[in-house]
Simulated assay, not measured.
Amino acid sequence: MNQHEIAEILAKPYAQELLFAPAPARFSYVALDGGPRVVPIGFHFDGERLQIFTVPKSAKVKALHHNPRVALTLDTNGFPPKVLLIRGTAELKLEQGVPEQYILAGRKVMTAEQHVGWTQGVKDLYDEMVRITVTPDWVKLIDFETNLPKDVQDLIDAKQAQG
């Protein structure tokens, strides 16, 4: 997939809704033991890339140094479901203090009152964080209204061809 195709999909209203929703992403990577891992995690979207922040000594940081390929899913709980699938490569950067994008990501999932206390707490806790920047190289938006999973669409087409 080229960057133009990715940008077109990420600009669609349902994709924007998911990227800025008050919900975590499901972040997957390959652990050092070779097994898959999926964790819910907050993120900041800068218009092109997703930024995730974590503790420098976390298991995911160690694993991503070994294998930087990742996948994320952003979805809804309602019906019909809306799903944004993202694959890409993670870049890691150690940063001093608490990056502003981490604070912005937190704002999405809590009230203003909660955010004030949380912000002070994380600033007191973290001397440094690792910024995980995911640049998408493949995306798919499934909204079950205008776009179905390929296997479901193939099944519908086959049934319709049978008459």
Rank of each mutant, 00 (worst) to 15 (best):
M1F: 07
N2E: 14
H4T: 13
H4K: 11
E5R: 10
A7N: 14
E8W: 07
I9N: 05
L10P: 10
A11S: 15
A11P: 12
Y14G: 08
A15P: 11
Q16C: 08
L18T: 09
F20D: 09
A21D: 15
P22M: 07
A23D: 13
A25E: 05
A25H: 01
A25F: 03
F27I: 02
Y29D: 04
V30H: 04
V30A: 11
G34D: 01
G35P: 00
G35F: 13
G35V: 01
P36S: 07
P36Y: 00
R37C: 14
V39F: 11
V39P: 00
V39S: 13
P40T: 08
P40W: 09
H44L: 13
F45L: 12
D46E: 07
E48K: 14
R49V: 11
R49K: 15
L50H: 06
Q51P: 04
F53M: 05
F53R: 02
T54P: 04
P56L: 02
S58M: 02
S58N: 01
A59Q: 14
K60G: 04
K60D: 07
K62Y: 09
A63P: 09
A63V: 03
L64Q: 07
H65Y: 11
H65F: 09
H66A: 15
H66I: 01
P68Y: 02
R69H: 14
V70H: 01
L72P: 08
L72I: 05
L74D: 11
T76H: 09
T76P: 09
V83E: 13
V83K: 06
L85I: 10
L92Q: 02
L92S: 05
L92H: 01
L92M: 03
K93Y: 03
E95D: 05
E95F: 01
G97H: 05
V98T: 10
V98N: 06
P99Q: 00
L104A: 12
G106I: 00
G106D: 02
R107D: 07
R107T: 00
R107C: 03
R107P: 01
K108G: 03
K108Y: 05
K108C: 07
M110G: 06
T111R: 06
A112W: 02
E113I: 05
Q114G: 06
H115R: 03
H115Y: 10
V116H: 07
W118H: 08
T119K: 08
Q120A: 13
G121E: 04
K123T: 00
K123V: 04
L125N: 12
V130W: 01
R131Q: 15
R131M: 13
I132P: 01
I132Y: 03
I132C: 05
T133I: 06
T133D: 07
T135A: 14
D137K: 00
W138R: 08
W138T: 00
K140N: 11
I142C: 08
I142W: 03
I142F: 08
D143S: 08
E145Y: 06
T146F: 12
T146G: 15
N147Y: 02
L148K: 06
L148G: 03
P149M: 08
K150S: 14
D151T: 13
V152Y: 12
V152L: 15
L155H: 14
D157M: 07
D157S: 09
K159V: 11
K159F: 12
Q160V: 11
Q160W: 07
Q160D: 06
Q160G: 01
A161Q: 14
Q162L: 15
